[in-house]
Design a protein around this nucleic acid. Structure first.
Lengths: 236, 236
DNA sequence: GTCTATAACGAGATAGAC
DNA sequence: GTCTATCTCGTTATAGAC
């Protein structure tokens, strides 16, 4: 019960990967709404009932694809974050945003799966939350580091938003001043507004030099959060 | 050729509206990808081929729904714009953004149809462009008016984005300074980032007081475009 | 001319018997 | 795991009612 086990385990991993790959192909071709276990099985030359050994339901396959997608963007963001260690806050912010955008442009259908319209009849389970939070955590990390140093401008905050800002700060980043936490959450949403508009065609016939436009826009967003253009003593 | 024509015309309008209503119901239930002419016809008690007298193809029905949705948000935005005539620029901006958000919350499936993931296999024809531009035109109008008066802060603009900003200004609003035009396009995308995140569930367990959060965030965005908090001599 | 109904095509999904 | 009978779909051709 030693080799058979590991051989079986290896086979299982391979088949699972093949199923997900084929499912991603269908995602691109037909959309998440029409993802069908039968079609995946057919394309893989297996019988439909065999798939259920790997994914108990269509929704479970969808969930796996969603988690994979969130992990992929998250990893792209984390890589850019590590690669710019020591740079100024706005530069790091921009690099991370550009990494997220680059991933989105390279994987538009997976982007649509996680940040686009909800799939009818599907509700994402809580298991997706950790993967879904990775990009946000990277952005929080950048701001957290910047707040430790000088040059951060705490944005203004209307009194009526104070309670919400304090709750946000306590929930997601206790070391951030509430106005910064609130601005950061808004910035996070705005970043994906830019990416979504480009990806889903709203920028067609409007924005042409999209690389530069994006870089400029996310820089503006970063300054809106209060990040300093240059951190004194930092490289970059 | 007087009464028979108008009676027929009236019937035609009614049937067309019934088809679209039923199609919208299916949009909400199954998503745009699964919108089916046959199902619409069945639910309406007509035979599938009869629908073709009203919509030459499934894609044409989709296009009609898309144009209707764009027109509906556009009208909501235009109403809010008119209702705040004479008020300060940030206040008008906020009112228009809130009207768009309110429409989106009230019509989530139609919002997803126009601002969410593209429908697989469907490409929107150029006929959708005028309706799709209405919200943007309202936002442009607010900024245009503000620029005529005092208090507008022209945002900074990196040299590398100058050509694109000048092109944008020339294309969409020749009377806006290029940095303002560029900031406005970014703001436009960011607005829908906020709405999309709320609607598509990214704010679940994150933002609670969403009305106030949204109002605050779009105010920040408006200031990023350079709009003055108060226009001297203006009501509001 | 305008509409509805019948029937059919080719393609694909699905359920169940075996 | 396979096969078949029965569904769905978009779309078209055709015939007839108003």
């Amino acid at each position: 019960m030693s080799t058979p086990h590991s051989a079986r385990a290896r086979a299982r991993i391979e088949v699972t990967a093949a199923i997900k790959d084929e499912a991603r192909r269908q995602l691109a071709a037909e959309g998440a709404a029409k993802l069908s276990l039968r079609a995946v099985a057919r394309e893989l030359g297996m019988v439909s009932s065999a798939i259920y050994r790997y994914f108990p339901s269509r929704d479970d396959l969808l969930t796996a694809l969603i988690i994979d997608a969130y992990d992929a963007v998250g990893e792209a963001a984390e890589s850019a974050h590590k690669a710019t260690a020591g740079a100024g806050a706005v530069r790091r912010w921009t690099a991370v945003c550009e990494a997220v955008r680059a991933w989105a442009l390279a994987n538009p259908h997976e982007y649509a799966l996680i940040y686009g319209s909800p799939v009818p009849g599907y509700v994402a389970p809580d298991t997706t939350v950790p993967a879904a939070s990775r990009v946000a955590f990277v952005l929080i990390g950048i701001v957290r580091d910047a707040v430790k140093g000088p040059g951060v401008t705490v944005p203004s905050l209307a009194v009526e938003l104070r309670p919400e800002a304090e709750r946000l700060s306590a929930d997601i980043a206790p070391d951030l001043p509430p106005p910064v936490a609130a601005a950061l959450v808004a910035a996070w949403a705005q970043l994906f507004g830019l990416i979504g508009f480009e990806l889903f065609g709203q920028f067609n016939r409007v924005v042409e030099d999209r690389d530069r436009f994006f870089r400029h826009a996310v820089g503006q967003i970063a300054r809106g959060v209060g990040l300093p253009d240059r951190t004194p003593g930092a490289r970059g």
